[in-house]
């Protein structure tokens, strides 16, 4: 089956500023794909190109097998969108906006609408000008999630939501995927991405710096280890082991994933008093990709073609 979204070599310039610089992105049908990147890296620009709101300067863009610029209207029948900054008509109520957006897409799914309103605890009788940021976000979410579509483009959909609503959103997102829908989720909430997304793409300065299965990305990265040993002597120069610090005899270190067995054996020889091992968190992946200004140095190399 064709990918839901496939983008390669996407370039978008605004005057002299290059917002997207040969960006690649592939989202398979039926997955929740995490779309990560620091502020200003081009996430929203990419999504707006995917919607046909912006015109690509170069590169291939296919969404649900269509060209989003030429075929915008027919494409939009099959997707729904939640913008990062939700602006609504101040003199309409939330309920009216939900109905309006749904009707323009072909009709309201009454059951779904009522269910979502209840789950997101949204009062549909308030005028949009009096909604808080979080409530405006909920209006856009309810409108998008109650639509009968194949693809959801969500641009930081939970930025203004409280933790309870955030959990509710994750729940709903899982249901959507279970029903066969595809979600592209741009987010800064890494816990959310970790719990929802099978695959992620990390972009920076308009370029994809890392992409693939979360599991594989972790595998390519280092594992964090916190260990307390009976004998600490001669630990200095072990291949694949990088000691970060030693506090009160407790060693925090990073281990290359392919050397983990050898390092564990070394620890065992010295008598393990306590040991905590965890794979690289998304946060570590993320930071490693960003913290050095040169781009991709010691992070995971760009592999858009990683097996999904």
């Amino acid at each position: 089956m064709d990918a839901a979204i496939s983008v390669s070599g996407l370039v978008k310039r605004f005057g002299r500023f290059t917002a997207l610089d040969r960006l690649d992105l592939k989202v398979e049908v039926g997955e929740v794909h995490g779309f990560l990147g620091p502020n200003g890296s081009g996430k929203s620009t990419t999504i707006r190109v995917l919607l046909g709101l912006l015109r690509a300067d170069a590169g291939q863009v296919r969404v649900l097998g269509r060209d989003p610029w030429r075929d915008a209207v027919r494409l939009h029948r099959h997707l729904a969108y939640v913008p990062g900054e939700v602006s609504l008509w101040p003199n309409l109520t939330g309920g009216e906006v939900i109905d309006l957006l749904a009707r323009m897409r072909g009709g309201v799914d009454e059951g779904r609408r009522a269910d979502l309103l209840e789950r997101f605890e949204l009062d549909p009788t308030k005028q949009c000008r009096s909604y808080s940021k979080g409530n405006r976000q909920k209006v856009a979410l309810v409108a998008a999630l109650s639509a009968d579509v194949e693809l959801l483009l969500l641009d930081e959909p939970t930025a203004g939501l409280d933790p309870i609503m955030e959990a509710e959103f994750q729940e709903v997102a899982r249901e959507e995927v279970a029903r066969g829908r595809t979600i592209l989720l741009s987010s800064h909430i890494l816990a959310e991405v970790e719990s929802l997304c099978g695959r992620v793409s990390i972009i920076r300065d308009g370029r994809t710096v890392s992409a693939g299965r979360l599991r594989d990305l972790r595998g390519l990265s280092r594992t964090s280890v916190t260990v307390r040993l009976q004998r600490q002597d001669e630990l200095g120069d072990v291949p694949g082991l990088r000691v970060l610090d030693v506090v009160d005899g407790e060693i925090r270190a990073e281990v290359d994933s392919d050397r983990i067995g050898a390092v564990m054996a070394l620890f065992a020889e010295r008598g393990i008093e306590s040991l905590v091992v965890h794979p690289a968190t998304l946060e570590e992946l993320f930071l490693r990709n960003y913290d050095d200004p040169g781009g991709v140095k010691h992070g995971v190399p760009t592999r858009p073609g990683l097996p999904a």
């Binding site: 309920g95 009216e96 309006l100 009707r103 323009m104």
Partner: peptide, 20 residues
């Protein structure tokens, strides 16, 4: 507060413009 549901008229871009 206002209506929880949109009226029939508010179903498309024309209805929206009229409301505005």
């Amino acid at each position: 507060s206002g209506p929880a549901r949109a009226s029939r008229l508010l179903s498309g871009p024309v209805g929206l413009a009229w409301r505005q």
